[in-house]
């Protein structure tokens, strides 16, 4: 995770329309550095539908096809099939969607693409709510969080949907989580995904200062603390769902520290914070146990 080799070529311009400190923009910048020019993006309704800029401009230097909210995965499947029937087997096709377009409205089409194992990279830049429409809860919104549809008097009581597990159940060749705080790791994972045939799913934690009620300069800080506080584990699932590798080589930090500068958690009382922190720890332990369990079954990871 310490290897510092970031390509210098920029495929994303600075003239985009994102908010200050936008994690989704940083995610795109590094992802494109990993993927290179031979890439086509399929973007559904999400922040990036706007960040790209207004017609006739575009903030990225590769082709983008904007598509309807729930269709990122299958539109990408169609693009890939269309390219291959023209004899182009080289271009990487990437569906690039937010958590609403992935966890919620786009789940069905994504499941279809993954079940067919269509040869695309599906990226969910996860900012944990419907940020483009102005911060409404999604099924990716973590427990305890405020949004405009989960007001502080009735904050989100249910945990974040485990999208990684759902994708693992599809037995696809590559699944990874990444964080914009670890660009070298993010680039490595995108390069790895690019080299694998089949459906690849990468979920990138992309803090949203606007929606998280966080100072923009703390965006990367939060993306790092989410990992070190075990809220957002960095993992890879390979061998068609049979091998789980969890990154553990970090100094653990507290859940309380992670949520402190985020206004979306400000209403939580001490006991509520403790309760949620307990949940974070048990999810982490369950993840480690599964890693161990899968590794203990002989012949499973081949």
């Amino acid at each position: 995770m310490r290897e510092a080799r970031i390509p210098t070529e920029e495929l994303m311009g600075s003239g985009h329309l994102a908010c200050q400190g936008c994690g989704a923009t940083i995610a795109m910048r590094f992802a494109l550095k990993a993927l290179g020019r031979e890439t086509i993006l399929v973007i559904p309704a999400c922040c990036w539908a706007v960040i790209d800029g207004t017609f006739p401009h575009s903030a990225v230097d590769i082709p983008i096809f904007h598509t309807a909210f729930e269709t990122a995965a299958v539109t990408a499947s169609g693009v890939k099939a269309g390219l291959e029937m023209r004899g182009d087997f080289e271009t990487t096709v990437v569906a690039w969607a937010g958590d609403g377009g992935t966890f919620d409205i786009g789940l069905q089409a994504l499941s279809g693409t993954a079940e067919r194992n269509d040869d695309i990279i599906y990226v969910c830049y996860d900012n944990e709510a419907y940020m483009n429409t102005g911060i409404q809860r999604s099924s990716s919104t973590p427990v305890g969080s405020w949004t405009t549809t989960t007001p502080v008097t009735n904050y989100k009581k249910r945990p974040k949907k485990n999208m990684v597990d759902i994708m693992a159940a599809h037995a696809i060749p590559y699944i990874a989580t990444a964080s914009v705080a670890y660009p070298e790791d993010l680039i490595r994972k995108f390069k790895k995904a690019k080299a694998i045939k089949g459906t690849k799913y990468i979920q990138v934690l992309a803090p949203c200062p606007t929606g998280w009620k966080l100072s923009p300069e703390l965006s990367i800080w939060a993306a790092r603390k989410a990992v070190t506080s075990k809220v957002y584990p960095m993992l890879e699932i390979t061998e068609n769902g049979n091998k789980l590798t969890v990154w553990k080589d970090f100094e653990p930090t507290s859940f309380k520290e992670y949520i402190k500068p985020q206004g979306r958690f400000r209403h939580l009382k001490e006991n509520e914070i403790e309760e949620i922190a307990k949940g974070v720890e048990s999810s982490w332990q369950r993840l480690l146990a599964r890693e161990k369990m899968l590794a203990s079954i002989p012949g499973l990871d081949t």
């Binding site: 309807a68 169609g78 890939k80 099939a81 269309g82 390219l83 023209r86």
Partner: peptide, 11 residues
């Protein structure tokens, strides 16, 4: 949606 993607790719 798949037809839209394929057609946009020129097929």
């Amino acid at each position: 949606a798949a037809c839209v993607g394929a057609s946009a790719a020129g097929s």
